[in-house]
Structure formats: C-alpha cells, structure tokens
C-alpha cells in the first residue's frame, strides 16, 4: 500500500497534495506502508447512499495504519475497536479491508 510523506515535516497522506496541511511544504515522497492496521473506530451503515444500498448493512472503518496515518475504508465483516485488519484491495475508489 502506498502513501505520501511530506519531505519537510513527515505528515502522511493517502494522496499527494499541493500543500502539506501542517507546514505548507510542497514536496512529497512516495512511501510504502505496512498493509495491516488496527481499527481505530467504525460504524455499521444501515441507511446507505443509492450506490451502496444493496450492500447495507456494511461497515465503514477508520484504520490506524501508521502513527501518522489513518485510512477510511470499507468492510463487510463485523469488527470492533482494536481489531487487527489487513488491506485487501482498492476497489471502485475505496480501500477495502479484511480481518487478519
């Protein structure tokens, strides 16, 4: 899994940015990050947007990937805070996770 790190302050982001939101530096380096993380929090969505209606109920998870990076993802397995999860695939613009 790839992320971007600000060359000046180390801020990490999933996408490259025009300006670092922490220090306004403009140069980012590509970094490879470990594909496992811990569930920082989650919700189970019952009332979904049209595109997701057929998948409901499903989980939207916030995964702590590194000390500086959390990623919002999609899961269809039950989870709790602190559970270890792994990045499974990037599908239709979403990071999909599964339990380890």
């Amino acid at each position: 899994m790839q992320a971007y790190q600000c060359r000046h302050c180390g801020y990490e982001s999933l996408t490259t940015k025009y300006y670092c939101p922490k220090c306004r530096h403009t140069e980012f380096s590509k970094v490879n990050i470990n594909e496992t993380g811990d569930i920082y929090s989650y919700t189970t969505i019952h009332i979904a947007p049209p595109k997701f209606a057929e998948h409901a109920p499903y989980h939207v998870v916030l995964v702590q990937m590194t000390d500086r990076l959390r990623v919002t993802g999609y899961m269809n397995q039950d989870v709790n805070i602190g559970d270890r999860v792994r990045f499974k695939e990037f599908s239709e613009g979403a990071y999909v996770f599964e339990k380890v």
Binding site: I45, V60, Y74
Partner: peptide, 9 residues
C-alpha cells in the same frame, strides 16, 4: 476523496 467511495455518509 476515497471516503465517499467507501460508503461513508
């Protein structure tokens, strides 16, 4: 953002 695509509301 990837958040909308994860089904976040």
């Amino acid at each position: 953002s990837n958040e909308k695509h994860a089904g976040l509301t």
